[in-house]
């Protein structure tokens, strides 16, 4: 059995997950990265995306999150998400709402830089919608 490490997922409202896991795929803003035990210390911002957790014994959980940051270390991974929900609980209308919000962000952005960022977030959300088959 692979080594485990402590994974904590925290949203502003509450602590969502705090348990030992085998691996986590984190949607970092520079690209997705996988965290296993004994990971080098990294601090990264996140983009909207899916977080895949592998629990000891191979069971998997998939969580949708939007923005935030992750702090990885040899023994622990802490993800501070602005918003997080189990992808099984994520329904069509909620995701559609997210996409509408993102579209508004793109329209509202005044500076090119923020618009690019918002556009990127919007594209990600659409991709997630297609991946989960919630179109």
């Amino acid at each position: 059995m692979a080594d485990t490490f402590t994974f904590e997922l925290v949203s502003p409202e509450r602590l969502l997950i705090s348990e030992p896991v085998e691996s986590v795929v984190v949607p970092g803003s520079e690209g997705d990265f996988q965290v296993l035990a004994h990971h080098a210390p990294v601090l990264s911002t996140l983009r909207p995306g899916l977080l895949d957790v592998v629990l000891p014994g191979g069971k998997e959980r998939r969580i949708f999150l939007r923005g935030g940051f992750a702090e990885a270390g040899p023994e622990s991974l802490t993800v501070l998400a602005q918003y997080a929900i189990d992808s099984a609980d994520l329904n069509k209308s909620a995701l559609a709402q997210e996409i509408t919000n993102a579209e508004e962000d793109v329209a509202d952005a005044k500076v090119d830089q923020t618009r690019d960022k918002a556009q990127g977030a919007l594209d990600r959300l659409k991709l997630i919608r297609d991946t989960l088959g919630l179109g």
Binding site: G28, V42, L43, T45, F69
Partner: peptide, 25 residues
């Protein structure tokens, strides 16, 4: 638990730029 020796992605300034507004909220 120190963050010394951490790698930053993208970089420190950008993380801080994102973190500070969120800290206000």
């Amino acid at each position: 638990g120190s963050l010394a020796g951490y790698e930053y992605e993208p970089d420190e300034d950008e993380i801080l730029a994102e973190l500070l507004p969120r800290n206000i909220s």
